[in-house]
């Protein structure tokens, strides 16, 4: 095996400039996914059956079809649905945000159900309204317990974000592919992209461990 990294050396900065693009997609999608995921999980545990159905239907759609298809539907379908062509960034935020909301809502639902029933009763007995009970008492405990799963979700989001390549966003993946096309050397730039993803995932893993340890203080 002969690796010729010197041929692509001049292009490495160009690939590295894809990092902020990837991070932007991941960050915005994670926020959308988390907030919407909390809302969906609350619908899922509601006693009102139609709310359960809506949330379950939502989840089944986004889990039942490929992510790359969802991305293409949103991006290429926007002129027909909205009457305007949305930007690649917006399509990426939407597709990844809506998709991870489906997964995150399942994780959070499990976390909420695992919190001791007595916590809810103790809060209610003090006259705390439902919203406060959820936000201040139940969710913090639920999220602490599911933190490893949430970090996992963030990690797969980071890796999956590479499919934005197909709608033309200049992320790490797309840039390494372009460099490959220009230099007729695909192996090295894509290997380099792999290294970047790996480092990002490792950083997330360590970050998750640090947060987890800090939250375990009360154990």
């Amino acid at each position: 095996m002969n690796l010729e990294f010197d041929r692509i050396m001049p292009s490495l900065p160009y690939i590295l400039e894809g990092i902020p693009i990837t991070l932007k997609v991941v960050a915005v999608a994670a926020v959308i996914g988390f907030v919407l995921g909390i809302l969906l999980s609350i619908l899922k545990i509601s006693r009102i059956k139609p709310l359960n159905w809506i949330a379950d239907f939502y989840t089944s759609i986004f889990r039942g079809t490929p992510l790359v298809l969802q991305l293409m539907l949103i991006y290429f379908g926007s002129p027909q649905i909205l009457g305007i062509q949305i930007e690649a960034f917006e399509a990426a935020f939407l597709a990844f945000g809506l998709n991870s909301a489906a997964y995150i809502s399942e994780i959070i639902r499990g976390g909420i159900l695992a919190v001791d029933k007595g916590q809810r009763e103790a809060a209610l007995a003090l006259g705390v309204p439902y919203s406060g009970m959820m936000l201040n008492i139940i969710l913090p405990q639920a999220i602490k317990n599911i933190l490893p799963s949430l970090v996992n979700e963030l990690i797969s989001l980071t890796k999956e974000s590479a499919v934005v390549t197909i709608i033309g966003l200049g992320d790490i993946m797309r840039r390494s592919y372009i460099v490959g096309g220009e230099t007729y050397k695909f192996f090295e730039p894509i290997l380099f992209a792999g290294l970047i993803y790996y480092v990002m995932v490792m950083i997330l893993t360590i970050l998750g461990k640090v947060i987890e340890r800090r939250m375990r203080r009360s154990d």
Partner: peptide, 13 residues
């Protein structure tokens, strides 16, 4: 109306 439970149910966090 205050209530005290058998298993305390303090907020652990």
């Amino acid at each position: 109306v205050g209530m005290v439970f058998q298993h305390f149910h303090l907020f652990p966090h």
